[in-house]
């Protein structure tokens, strides 16, 4: 019955390797809800709190990439240079919970939980983030699409932890939108992230809460690329409808599948219109 507070990533993964029952704890905003409701009964905990290496971010303008450590909180993402280089991630972070939740909750925890409603995940999917993973003595990187493999399932192996994510800095508009019952403290019913790349006028769209994993609307993206007519209201509506066709929503306590599909249509049309009204 112990709580370990390692100072480095290497120490943390060593602990995970030598204590197979140990659970990782970051901001606690998912972890402790499960503990308080007896859904999780930790015997050994490895807290990431004292690992300063996880709380860093690094904007590299020469390689057009940004690295964000797993221990970076939502309130940090909202208030730092990260918000300038990946505005969609800041918008998504801004929608999480309440100030108290955003002060504690981390990007790494969102990836650890890997809920289809996780607000940063559509952004990571649309930007084709690389997830950086550590295990004793080694590092590996996987594409986001290979990291999230199901509802609340990621491809971490035992003894591994997320160190951070590596994202491209894309020139062009990007945004995140979500539907829920109110503005604050709401888990999304449907969400979408849209990223425009000015270099080739391509678009990338990822949908949250409408399938077991985050869904990339590849067909709608390809359709967008084929359009030669100037962007119009009709085109945005058609684009939204095409995105909705790619959603795989279910009915649950938060919403019906039909409403979710409708919400995807509206959100994607709206994001497309916003992206063009620069």
């Amino acid at each position: 019955m112990s709580v370990y507070t390692p100072q480095t990533i290497e120490e943390a993964v060593e602990l995970l390797a030598t204590h197979p029952d140990a659970m990782l704890l970051s901001g606690g905003t998912d972890f402790m809800v499960e503990v308080n409701f007896n859904h999780r009964k930790p015997t050994e905990v490895v807290s990431t709190k004292a690992i300063n290496e996880l709380k860093v971010w690094d904007v590299d303008h020469s390689s057009h990439t940004v690295f964000i450590g797993a221990g970076v909180t939502y309130s940090t993402i909202e208030a730092t240079e990260i918000a300038e280089v990946v505005p969609a991630l800041a918008e998504a972070s801004r929608t999480v919970g309440s100030p108290q939740i955003r002060a504690a909750g981390t990007l790494g925890g969102n990836l650890g939980t890997c809920s289809p409603a996780g607000d940063t995940l559509p952004v990571l999917a649309a930007l084709e983030a690389r997830i950086v993973i550590a295990s004793p003595g080694s590092h590996r990187e996987v594409a986001f699409a290979d990291f999230m493999v199901g509802a609340k399932k990621n491809s971490l192996r035992s003894g591994e932890m997320v160190v951070g994510v590596s994202l491209p800095i894309v020139r062009g508009w990007q945004g995140y939108a979500k539907v829920g019952v109110r503005n604050a403290m709401v888990i999304s019913i449907a969400s979408a992230c849209l990223v425009r790349d000015d270099v080739d006028d391509s678009v990338k769209v990822a949908l949250g809460s409408v399938g077991p994993t985050i869904i990339r609307a590849h067909d709608a993206e390809a359709w967008w690329k084929d359009q030669t007519v100037p962007r119009s209201k009709e085109m945005f509506a058609e684009f939204g409808a095409r995105c909705a066709l790619e959603a795989k929503p279910i009915t649950d306590h938060r919403s019906t599948a039909d409403y979710r599909r409708h919400a995807v249509k509206v959100l994607c049309a709206r994001l497309a219109a916003r992206s063009s009204s620069r």
Binding site: L25, M32, N36, F37, V45, S75, Q100
Partner: peptide, 27 residues
């Protein structure tokens, strides 16, 4: 609520207001 929803348990930890129901005390 003990799930971060109500804020009645708010305390300051290292300068930030957080829900104490979501802080593992031993950490």
């Amino acid at each position: 609520c003990e799930q971060g929803e109500c804020g009645s348990c708010t305390v300051m930890v290292d300068g930030s207001a957080v829900c104490s129901c979501l802080v593992l005390a031993a950490s």
